[in-house]
């Protein structure tokens, strides 16, 4: 192997690793706050990427209809929850969040359709749609069972994953799609060529990590989320609305998923079910990071990306085997380093 190949592989690994880092962060975030292991994260990626690709191709993506429909169901769930005390303020808030927002996005899309696509507008619309889906997904699928065990939440995640992946196939078909790059510029340093896209990947990843760090460290909502993560009951007693914490966590996770998707879709062709595998690699990073530490997760994600890049060069047949087996030595080390502690379950 020569240095050029080494550098190319490293670059490839770091670019992919940055994406996995984003996904890993979102998974850690959602797990810490809601105890949900977010398997549908993969669908947020696909929905974000393919919505953006469809919009760029001048098509109307089906995801907006899903967002509207889920909003209506979420509104119905809200009404059912409020049925004993139907205050106008609560109901109006619910109407605004669940009905007006998705309809407004749809309206903008209809108004814009037919005009030449603007990348920034398309990205914004894609993010908004996926964010809405993420929010309503929490309201519909998880909020009613938020108090149950991690296992029940995990199985619910599987259900959401299956349903959303099925919708993905209906909306986007079985063929893969690619989206336009955010920037077509490129700079060359030595033997390496950095495309605008890969620079965007690095920049956005770093910005999001710093943003999350600031959010959790220095804002009231961030602290409320951390409090919910540590102790739900305690947080509620302190006046934190734990359902709101869950909603914020899902909102952030879906936006991060969608951003990851939009960042990858110009680099690789995405299919309706690609997100699952990409999301799982984020999982590997999150698990290596112990589902608690953001910096460790980010570092682990880079490692996963690099291992993937190198194994696809040396043993491409066994690429997935190697990446997913990577987790085992880490888990062994973890279990040796920290003997299992007693936890009150159920």
């Amino acid at each position: 192997m020569n240095t050029t190949i080494l550098l190319f592989l490293l670059q490839d690994g770091i670019t992919n690793g940055a994406i996995y880092a984003l996904l890993g962060l979102a998974l850690v975030l959602v797990f810490a706050v809601t105890r949900v292991i977010l398997i549908p994260q993969g669908e947020f990626i696909t929905f974000g990427a393919l919505t953006y690709a469809s919009l760029s191709a001048g098509q109307m993506p089906g995801t907006i209809k899903l967002a509207v429909a889920m909003g209506i169901v979420a509104f119905a769930f809200d009404l059912f929850t409020f049925r004993r005390a139907l205050h106008a303020k609560r109901v109006l808030r619910s109407v605004a969040v669940n009905i007006i927002v998705p309809l407004a996005i749809w309206g903008v899309m209809l108004a814009l359709s037919g005009r030449p696509a603007n990348i920034a507008v398309n990205i914004t619309l894609s993010l908004l749609i996926v964010a809405a889906i993420g929010l309503y997904l929490y309201r519909i699928a998880y909020q009613p069972i938020a108090h149950t065990s991690v296992l029940v939440l995990l199985i619910a995640s599987v259900g959401c994953h299956l349903a959303l992946q099925g919708f993905g196939l209906v909306f986007f078909g079985a063929e893969g799609q690619r989206g336009p790059a955010i920037s077509s510029d490129a700079i060359t340093i030595g033997a390496l060529r950095f495309t605008g896209q890969s620079i965007a990947v690095y920049g956005i990843t770093i910005a999001l990590i710093v943003g999350l760090w600031l959010f959790f460290g220095y804002t009231l909502y961030g602290k409320a989320l951390r409090a919910t993560a540590v102790n739900r009951l305690g947080a509620r007693l302190a006046g934190i609305r734990t359902t709101l914490s869950g909603q914020i966590a899902f909102l952030l996770a879906s936006v991060i998923g969608a951003i990851s998707g939009i960042l990858i879709v110009p680099i690789t062709t995405l299919y309706y079910d690609t997100g699952f595998l990409i999301g799982l690699k984020g999982f590997v990073a999150a698990i290596i990071g112990g589902l608690v530490s953001y910096p460790l997760t980010a570092a682990a994600a880079i490692l996963v990306g690099c291992v993937e890049a190198f194994s696809s060069f040396y043993a491409s047949n066994y690429k997935e085997v190697i990446v997913f087996t990577l987790i085992l030595p880490v888990l062994v080390l973890r279990s040796l380093a920290a003997p299992a502690v007693e936890e009150e379950k159920d």
Binding site: V150, L280, I287, L291, E320, T325
Partner: peptide, 28 residues
């Protein structure tokens, strides 16, 4: 021996990982 010592949520995640890894191995 590797995964059963893991507690809580690590265990299901660990099993997903080797489940996928073995699936690819069977296919290669």
């Amino acid at each position: 021996l590797i995964t059963m010592r893991l507690s809580g949520h690590y265990l299901p995640l660990g099993t997903i990982a080797w489940g996928i890894s073995l699936f690819y191995l069977f296919g290669k």
